[in-house]
């Protein structure tokens, strides 16, 4: 399966992978691949988004995603404004719409939003003229994470089509799993997910994956093993007994890695719980591409911003 890249993105926003066609995904990955070259220059900055304003609206704690977006914005010469608050609109006594209107009054070109609740980026995108980029919404989507994961796999394995990717962990509360399953299956990969049955949401296979309960079954013969963070802070105490027992059954140990292909990639979106979902020997081992994922994150976010900056006005003839 080869996918021809689209000539442009159809929407003004990037709220999820679900809205993207395979051709658009290809365009984003191709563009990101070109963006990687900028990081190798003596001057790691291009003027493409000069004069554009990006508001980084982080309504949930995040370090790496926010830094990654900031680096991407600076490398494209955009002006970044950071707004961090762990509170929701309710706690601030302001509706989401008010927040949106206040931001719009500052006339930003982009709003990069991380939010505790699913759908907040969609609601903002509807209300705003600015381009809205989802930097993670609740347990819904994290599109730039999936794109950087895909870029990493593509670079290491040459293609996404035909790859067998195992994703394991907290499937119920992970936004990374949703975006990754949709993206990888759309690009022709075989996706297997694994997690405790009490953390497998109903109908997840409809996103484009096979469901396994035993980690070993998912990993067997895989090209890529992607471990998800166990979101201890999101868990009630009823989904699995203890972290210790979780590691026993779902921790990625060197022995379990051996079940995958010999040169299989080990990935993790971070931040890792070492000794919970992943053993340090694996995280720091030769098959780990975890730090490359971080590097690729910047290029992917540059590509997203660049492609969305294409103006929303009247079409102009070339």
């Amino acid at each position: 399966m080869t996918v021809k890249a689209a000539s442009h993105l159809r929407g003004k926003d990037l709220v999820g992978i679900d809205q993207l066609s395979p051709e658009e995904i290809q365009l984003l990955l191709d563009t990101a691949e070109q963006m990687q070259e900028i990081a190798k220059r003596p001057i790691k900055k291009v003027p493409a988004l000069r004069g554009k304003t990006v508001v980084n609206l982080f309504m949930e704690p995040s370090t790496r995603t926010r830094f990654s977006f900031e680096v991407a914005e600076k490398r494209l010469s955009a002006d970044s404004l950071n707004f961090s608050s762990s509170g929701t609109s309710v706690e601030k006594g302001e509706t989401l719409l008010d927040t949106a209107r206040n931001l719009e009054a500052m006339q930003p070109d982009f709003i990069v939003i991380r939010h505790r609740y699913a759908g907040a980026p969609h609601q903002l995108a509807r209300a705003l003229k600015s381009s809205v980029v989802n930097a993670g919404d609740g347990a819904h989507e994290h599109p730039t994470q999936a794109l950087l994961d895909a870029l990493t796999i593509r670079q290491k394995r040459g293609t996404l089509a035909g790859q067998v990717v195992a994703i394991a962990g907290d499937l119920a509360y992970s936004r990374v799993v949703r975006s990754n399953v949709i993206l990888l299956s759309r690009m022709g990969a075989t996706v297997r997910v694994a997690g405790p049955p009490s953390l497998v949401p109903p109908g997840i296979e409809a996103l484009g994956c096979e469901v396994h309960y035993r980690l070993e079954d998912a990993i067997a013969g895989a090209d890529v093993v992607m471990m998800l963070r166990i979101q201890l802070e999101r868990q009630g105490k009823m989904n699995f007994p203890t972290v210790r027992e979780y590691y026993d059954f779902f921790g990625l140990t060197p022995e379990r890695v051996k079940l995958a292909k010999k040169d299989a990639l080990v990935m993790h979106p971070g931040p890792m719980n070492r000794g919970v979902e992943i053993d340090s020997r694996v995280a720091d081992g030769p098959q780990s591409v975890i730090l490359e994922q971080v590097t690729n994150g910047v290029a992917v976010r540059m590509a997203v911003l660049y492609l969305l900056a294409g103006g929303h006005g009247e079409p102009v003839a070339d």
Binding site: K12, A48, K52, G310, G313, V316
Partner: peptide, 25 residues
Amino acid sequence: LDITLYRDDVGPWRAAHQQPLLRDT
């Protein structure tokens, strides 16, 4: 040399959502 990211006509001057494709430098 790909000069796309240095063009003076990227952004709202172009057709809606169309950005020139990047090529190898």
